[in-house]
């Protein structure tokens, strides 16, 4: 690693924080959105169920990039809403994360046996009491480990923000590459930083898995956007 590259290290680390913050925000919104969609998927009201299904299937079957293009370039034209690159990326990532998280959360809720729901009902609990005291605590151990996988996926996807000009980790790496006379070495460093962050998180996820004795490998495999 050249000395010049070292001088850029603080810049890269700051950009890494931006990336982590951006993807964390998108994941949080995605978790809230995913919960609502999961509940809608399990509703007794058919149109609601269909709508939720449509949402998840739609966002699972189109690339995040074209959603991002639409949110960033299209929204101002269509709805007159101007979004900053940061907000646009957050929205696009959160939409995608919502669809993934809804499946994770649904699997978690469905993992709680029918008997638990019936027992809570029989004990005279309201819907919210049942959720708060019986269902969620049990579902959480199934939901948490794969959520780590969703976070890693979201963090990788946040690199797309660089395409619409937002200066996060990837864009910072590309800018450093230009100032350093088009060497690709900064990009290797960039990959290394991403790897270290995500691998660190995945080790945390593995610890969660061991603690809760669930296998998330299947759910985190697949997409590589």
């Amino acid at each position: 690693m050249s000395a010049q590259l070292l001088t850029y290290m603080p810049l890269l680390l700051k950009a890494a924080l931006v990336t982590i913050w951006l993807s964390w925000l998108a994941l949080l919104i995605g978790a809230v959105g995913g919960t609502l969609i999961a509940l809608a998927r399990m509703s007794t009201f058919l149109p609601l169920r269909l709508l939720a299904l449509l949402f998840t299937e739609f966002f699972r079957s189109i690339p995040i990039l074209i959603v991002l293009f639409f949110v960033f370039f299209g929204m101002p034209l269509v709805f007159g809403i101007d979004l900053s690159p940061f907000t646009a990326t957050t929205v696009a990532l959160a939409l995608h994360a919502s669809s993934t998280m809804s499946e994770v959360i649904r699997a978690g809720l469905e993992s709680v046996g029918k008997g638990q729901w019936e027992a809570a009902r029989a004990a005279g609990m309201t819907y919210w009491q049942m959720m708060r005291h019986v269902i969620v605590p049990q579902a959480l151990r199934v939901i948490l480990p794969p959520s780590v996988g969703v976070y890693i996926a979201t963090l990788k996807e946040s690199s797309l923000a660089s395409i619409i000009g937002y200066v996060e980790l990837t864009k910072t790496g590309l800018l450093i590459r230009e100032t350093m006379g088009s060497s690709f070495v900064p990009l290797l460093l960039l990959a290394l930083i991403y790897f270290l962050i995500n691998y660190g998180i995945s080790l945390g996820g593995a610890a969660l898995e061991r603690r809760f004795h669930v296998n998330t490998r299947l759910m985190t495999a697949g997409a590589g956007q």
Partner: peptide
């Protein structure tokens, strides 16, 4: 490495 690095970064590395 492949699972933990964004595809976009890999594409840029190959491209440049």
């Amino acid at each position: 490495v492949m699972r933990n690095t964004p595809l976009l970064v890999i594409l840029y590395i190959v491209y440049f």
